[in-house]
Design a protein around this nucleic acid. Structure first.
Lengths: 162, 162
DNA sequence: TATTGTTATACTCTATAACTATA
DNA sequence: TATAGTTATAGAGTATAACAATA
């Protein structure tokens, strides 16, 4: 390294790598959302779960796990936490399944979650030229399909690194 | 949840969220790269480090940490591993700093790393319309700046969730 | 038998604090 | 004093295996 470089930033050949930039950008957004959600004592994954239950009342925690790429075993402490916090209600539905619904408190909390997420999204959406926004989401979805593979669309609990 | 929805996929209001899609896409790419790199017993972060040392011979591990968003303390086992694997050489340079360089083996290994990364990037770059590629990288970089804040450009070791 | 919820456990990644060695 | 490297440790997040309960 030359003398100048020792006191300034490194030359960074990773700057042009999609995978690297995706990861760093994702970490930034997750950290920002996490710090906003701390105000209501929720983590991003818990906000996602509340959002999904609201959109799919009666779903099971296995359903949620499949949708979010979280394994059954790892859903357990999450759902216990949300239930103990009084945000989610569980009712037996056949087999060992439990139908999930938001409690009144959960519905109220979700209102705040929505406001936080909307402000968070707006802050970063700004950075995309308007005509790029839908295309960007579409590409990100196609990356997921590339990894999750058409071959196991209904295959639950496949490790993806999520 | 209606009867049909109980056997099919959940309705997913997260599909339109940039943060969520970014995270899932990033996880897919990292998992794919990770599985490719297993063949040469390296993790993505180690591949990044080799790449950065090659581009900045003589840099310190603190330099690398700042560039990659990894804290000093967490760089230690990484550098010990790469040094023990005979890929990196460390030489005292003043203070407690050690100048880092790739060994001959490290340079050879980096050749393979480059081929793996290039194949990996190509697979996913395909999903972007050509005229979108540079714009996408630019937006991802701007997301990072948004999070890492112009106010602490030279501020090392700020937690970012990386 | 297949699926759901569960327990236990291990491994990776990241964060914090404190210590040392040197300029 | 400030910086680099280090140690120890704690907390997330995630992975695997096994078990119980019910359809």
């Amino acid at each position: 390294m030359d003398i100048d470089a020792r006191t300034s930033k490194l030359s960074d050949p990773l700057e042009t790598l999609l995978g690297y930039q995706l990861r760093r950008a994702s970490n930034v957004m997750m950290a920002e959302l996490g710090s906003r959600l701390q105000a209501i004592e929720l983590r991003p994954v818990e906000a996602s779960i509340l959002t999904l239950i609201d959109a799919n009342p009666g779903c099971t925690q296995s359903d949620l796990g499949r949708s979010l790429g979280i394994q059954r075993a790892n859903m357990v402490p999450l759902m216990v936490g949300l239930t103990k916090a009084g945000l989610v209600d569980r009712a037996p539905v056949g087999g060992r399944s439990q139908a999930l619904r938001l409690t009144r408190t959960g519905i109220e909390r979700l209102e705040t979650v929505r406001a936080i997420i909307e402000a968070h999204e707006a802050r970063f959406r700004r950075l995309f030229a308007p005509e790029l926004r839908e295309a960007a989401l579409q590409v990100l979805r196609s990356i997921r399909q590339e990894g999750e593979g058409a071959s196991r669309q209904d295959d639950p609990e496949q490790p993806t690194g999520d």
